[in-house]
Simulated scan of single mutants.
Amino acid sequence: MRTLTVEGADLAYGDGVPVLTGVTVTARPGELLAVTGTSGAGKTTLLSAMAGLLPPAAGRVLVDGDPLLDRDQGVKLGVVLIPQDNGLAAILTAEENIAVAMIATGGTPAEARRGTSTSLEKLGLSGQAGQLIEELSGGQQQRTAIARGLALHGDVLLADEVTSELDAANRQRVIDLLRAEADRGAAVVFATHDPEAAAACDHELHLADGTAILVR
């Protein structure tokens, strides 16, 4: 399993003013790290950098001590991102979205079938496997995106506000599944504005006023 480190990073879009400055934090195998802060504090920005989508304007993002240069490298290193907007293809079914992602990252069709079935079952979505994404509710779409992320069995799992559309029971189900990923040995980073969800994590990085403070 891999360790992901952000080291003295300034994060900005283009030539704009940095959203975050001097961020230093480590996501370690077997641990669940909460990233908290108000809307606009930079949670998505930080996870984008951790995923290799946003190169730091200063500082570095490292995976096992080596610089993370882009998203393609992140995928090869097993850095899985569950984005806030779910990133699902609306014209595909729930099971097709998951199977395509598994095959694209090296899984066989047989592995994709098994992994898809298992991950949908974990999220209580077996009955929606054959439905188009556009036919699903917002909460079901969010759970499908989570199921896809879990099916990829990443060494690092980045989950961006993945419980925002969920009721209390499904929110707890997802938190338990993220904990299970950490117990499996993955380094899990969970961006959330929910204090109860953050409290269930091992550590918390709080973002405010362009800075990041490890509060526990």
Rank of each mutant, 00 (worst) to 15 (best):
M1T: 13
M1Y: 13
R2K: 12
T3H: 02
L4V: 05
L4D: 04
V6E: 13
V6I: 15
A9W: 09
D15C: 06
G22Q: 04
G22W: 11
G22I: 06
G22E: 05
V23D: 12
R28A: 10
L32W: 07
L33C: 11
A34G: 00
V35I: 14
T36V: 10
T38V: 14
T38R: 15
S39A: 13
A41D: 00
G42R: 13
G42A: 14
K43M: 12
L47K: 07
L47V: 06
A51I: 03
G52E: 14
L53W: 05
L53S: 06
L54M: 14
P55D: 14
P56Q: 11
A58D: 12
G59D: 13
V61N: 04
V61Q: 11
G65D: 09
L68V: 11
K76C: 00
K76R: 15
G78Q: 03
V79P: 11
V79K: 13
V79C: 07
V80Y: 04
P83M: 08
G87T: 07
T93C: 08
E95P: 00
N97F: 12
N97E: 10
I98R: 03
A101I: 01
A101T: 00
A101G: 02
M102H: 08
A104R: 09
T105Y: 01
T108E: 04
A110S: 10
E111P: 02
G115C: 05
T116Y: 06
T118N: 10
E121V: 06
L125W: 14
S126R: 13
S126T: 15
Q128F: 12
Q128Y: 07
Q128A: 14
I133G: 11
A145G: 15
A145N: 07
A145W: 00
R148Y: 06
R148I: 04
G149V: 01
V156L: 02
L157H: 06
L158G: 05
D160S: 07
D160N: 08
E165L: 06
L166E: 03
A169G: 03
A169D: 12
N170A: 04
N170G: 00
N170H: 09
R173F: 07
V174C: 03
I175E: 01
L177T: 01
L177F: 00
L177S: 03
A180P: 00
A182K: 14
A182M: 11
R184Q: 13
A187P: 14
V188Q: 01
V188L: 02
V189C: 06
A191M: 05
A191H: 06
D194M: 09
P195Q: 08
E196V: 12
A197I: 11
A199S: 14
A200N: 05
C201H: 13
H206N: 08
L207H: 14
A208F: 15
A208E: 15
A212H: 12
I213A: 09
I213C: 02
I213W: 00
